[in-house]
Amino acid sequence: MTRFQSPFVRVCWYLSLAILAVPFVFPFLWMLSGAVKSQTEIFAPTLTLLPETWHWENYAEVFSYQPFARQYFNSLYIACVVTAGTLFISSLAGYALARIRFAGSGLLLLLLISALMMPEEVTIIPNFFLMKWLGLMNTHMPLILLPMFGSQGVMATFLMRQYFTALPPELEEAARMDGLSRFGIFWKVALPLSRPALAAVGIITFLFSWNLFLEPLVFLSDIELFTLPLALSNFTDAYGLPLWHLQMAATSLAVVPILVVYIAAQRQIVESFALSGVKG
């Protein structure tokens, strides 16, 4: 929209945008609404966004139904470890692929990118046997190692590599003239300048780990070790049917960290996605 539009045109634009936003906003509102409704009211013939009776106790029940606090913590610490580890590995690997000339670097990059083409459903069985062989079944290690060194790690490395490739080489040369070693250049020049890319990789990785479902389903059997996506699917009655009010309440709690991160770093996240798109 340009700055000189008439108020009428502007109102039309906002109206159109508001209408277009409905399909995206409605499920979220429905989740919040369902979280404080009774199971019966959710399926009432009349569709209401505000509940007749507010059932705040749903939130308490979420925690008594299964060890939800423990599962919440599991998800949180796994996502943090995966994010930190991925940032560390992908920034180093991305820098090496972008800036260090070594034999076979092109081939290595090609191999890495080709790994992105492989759906994780294809690799889950070999990974299952690998983790079993390593004695890591029913531990959190597969949920940490697989994202860091699997397709998500590759994606992160590729993003970082693209960003480092776009950094002006003169900056590194100036740093060399100033007396920095290769690692010094990475640490003191390249890494501080790649904050937007690090933010992008960080948020993508955190989301990826936070939403991981297949791996916890395959590798975990102890309910104390469950992560949130698995725990959410576990709010069922004796017949295995979903308890929607509890699922909605638990889900609304599960989105809190994501929302906090997004609101705190909204500008940087949007910038970083735009930047990685342009530079890539």
């Binding site: 100036a174 003239m177 100033d178 007396g179």
Partner: peptide, 16 residues
């Protein structure tokens, strides 16, 4: 480079 006693001014300035 850093031990040659030379300093360079780049075309693109190369300021951090």
């Amino acid at each position: 480079a850093a031990k040659r006693g030379v300093a360079m001014v780049f075309q693109s300035y190369a300021l951090y």
